[in-house]
Computed example of a mutant assay.
Amino acid sequence: MTQIDYNKSDDHYVHNVMKKFKWRYFTGWNFTVQIIYFMTCVTEDIMRLMKHTSVPNDWIRRVKDFIFTSLFFPGTLFVTLMFWIVYLIDRKLVCPVAVEVVVPSWINHSIHTVIIVVLVIEMRITRHRYSKRSLGLAALAIYLTAYDILFFNAFITDGAWIYPLYQVLNWFYRMLLLVTSTTTIFGFYILGECLSDKLVGYQLQRINEKINSY
């Protein structure tokens, strides 16, 4: 995001929306969550090595699992599916051709396609403990509310819709899309809770079979 050269394009959307509000795209927020999760995993591994044990401190495991279950899984699944569904219907509504001038296709795939592959691998090799559903959904709700505030603030202050899709919709369908998207993300949280144990490899499940939900 910091290395994108917006001067390669003279497109209005690229300069007046994408460049100005580059930190308000949900894809960027999701990618940031993934980076934080990765750093948490590395911290856990370092703590294990320093203490010469295969059993991590409970608090770091709780933090890692909470980030993954509450934000990582539902956010990543939503970003991938939402982007490519809209892209296949009409790419101008989510990724106009002018965007590819400043954002190469390999970057686009790294933040919209590869992330789902990483998600599946992570769920396959790591058994994540879910906290109380009310707590996980509350954290997700706070996360989405903070994002929505900044999203609508861009329109209120500059009259700009971050996503081209919102530009072609009237207010009724904008609100309907917002409600549907929010409901879908909450649904993905519950889906992750249901799939958590089922996707873990058999041998790994035997090793971690004594780990219970907290």
Rank of each mutant, 00 (worst) to 15 (best):
K8T: 05
D10V: 07
D10E: 12
H12C: 05
Y13D: 08
H15Q: 15
N16W: 00
V17Q: 01
M18T: 00
M18P: 03
K19H: 01
K20N: 00
K22Y: 03
R24F: 02
T27R: 02
W29N: 08
N30G: 15
F31H: 03
T32G: 01
Q34H: 11
I36R: 00
M39P: 00
M39L: 13
T40L: 12
T40S: 14
V42G: 05
T43S: 15
T43A: 14
I46W: 05
K51V: 03
T53G: 09
T53N: 10
T53V: 00
V55I: 10
V55N: 12
D58R: 08
W59K: 08
W59P: 03
I60V: 13
I60L: 08
D65V: 02
D65C: 09
F66N: 03
I67F: 13
I67G: 03
T69C: 15
T69G: 01
T69S: 07
F73N: 03
G75H: 03
T76D: 02
L77K: 05
L77E: 05
T80M: 12
L81C: 14
F83M: 07
I85Q: 00
V86W: 07
V86T: 05
Y87V: 08
I89Y: 15
R91A: 12
L93N: 08
L93D: 11
L93T: 09
L93R: 06
V94S: 05
V94R: 01
V97C: 06
A98N: 12
V99P: 04
E100Y: 13
V101H: 09
V102P: 12
V102Q: 07
P104S: 09
S105P: 03
S105N: 11
S105T: 13
I107L: 14
N108Q: 06
S110R: 07
I116Y: 08
V118G: 09
V120Y: 11
V120F: 15
V120Q: 09
T126F: 09
T126L: 05
R127N: 06
R127F: 14
H128S: 05
H128C: 10
R129V: 13
K132H: 04
R133G: 09
R133W: 02
S134H: 02
L135H: 12
G136Q: 04
G136S: 03
G136N: 00
G136K: 02
L144S: 13
A146Q: 11
I149Y: 11
L150H: 07
A154L: 06
